[in-house]
């Protein structure tokens, strides 16, 4: 292999790793994929170090060193792309694909179709609504939680579009969540219909709660990736704090203005 070919393999493995990391894969999966891609083309000495904010790859071939550093961040959770890259890397390792074809495959994965926005918003509504039912809500609570979570998801789509910092995103998400739920409940009370606020908030908060970040961080820590694990843990804690601040602000404000308790 000449220098050019090695650089292309390096770039290919970087691209695959980037897709995995940005769509919320675990650290070990990213590292394994990069190693698999390098090793399958006969590069024995490939080292990579992956943290949630960057990928570092270094390979040695024929006494020469090649390395690449890529700065990135976790943007969302997209399990379809993770599954696709996983299949791709297995196919690549079996040796039937050339590097040019592999590059095209990865481009196809990057542009893979997603759910449409209205489907995502509806999905969020279904998720929040039925969660409320699991936690003891009735039909009224279900419909309110359905509406509230649709609002929250709508906002979260907008904030992804405008690249809001994650702390602001979750803080505002918490505020919108609590505010919408309060308005719905209080306006229903004017018609003499009373709803339980707790189950509504719990349901509609669920799409924002960092469950995946917590589980992935502990997974990373136990498999020995301490740096990734602690940084993911930090992310999860900060998201929880931001949500709590958002919800708490509105709750406190309501009690201060109207008195009584929720």
């Amino acid at each position: 292999m000449n220098k050019n070919e090695i650089n292309r393999i390096l770039k290919l493995s970087r691209r695959a790793g980037k897709i995995l990391l940005e769509n919320g894969a675990e650290t070990y999966r990213v590292e394994e994929t990069i190693n698999l891609i390098c090793n399958s083309k006969g590069i024995e000495d490939a080292n990579c170090f992956v943290v949630p904010t960057g990928i570092f790859i270094n390979i040695e071939y024929d006494g020469e060193y090649y390395s690449i550093i890529h700065r990135t961040s976790i943007e969302r959770i997209d399990l379809e792309r993770i599954a696709m890259v996983n299949n791709f890397s297995r196919g690549f390792a079996s040796g039937s694909i050339t590097v040019t074809e592999a590059d095209k495959d990865l481009e196809r994965i990057e542009n893979a179709p997603e759910f449409k926005n209205w489907q995502i918003i509806l999905g969020g509504g279904v998720a929040g609504g039925f969660f409320t039912l699991l936690f003891g809500g009735g039909p009224i609570e279900f419909s309110l939680a359905f509406l509230t979570s649709m609002f929250v998801i709508m906002f979260s789509l907008i904030s992804i579009k405008y690249k809001l910092p994650f702390f602001m995103k979750n803080f505002t998400g918490g505020i919108i969540n609590m505010f919408a739920a309060l308005i719905f409940i209080k306006s229903l009370e004017c018609f003499g219909v009373y709803a339980d606020i707790d189950s509504i908030i719990i349901g509609s908060l669920m799409p924002l709660v960092p469950g995946v970040a917590i589980v992935n961080s502990i997974r990373d820590i136990i498999s020995g990736d301490f740096v990734s694990g602690t940084s993911r843990m930090m992310e999860a804690v900060l998201i929880a704090v931001a949500l709590a601040l958002g919800v708490g602000t509105v709750l406190q404000g309501y009690i201060m203005i109207f008195g009584g308790s929720i």
């Binding site: 959770i77 997209d78 509806l122 279904v126």
Partner: peptide, 8 residues
């Protein structure tokens, strides 16, 4: 199912 759509 709803969360499945959110996580694509």
């Amino acid at each position: 199912f709803g969360f499945g759509i959110l996580f694509n």
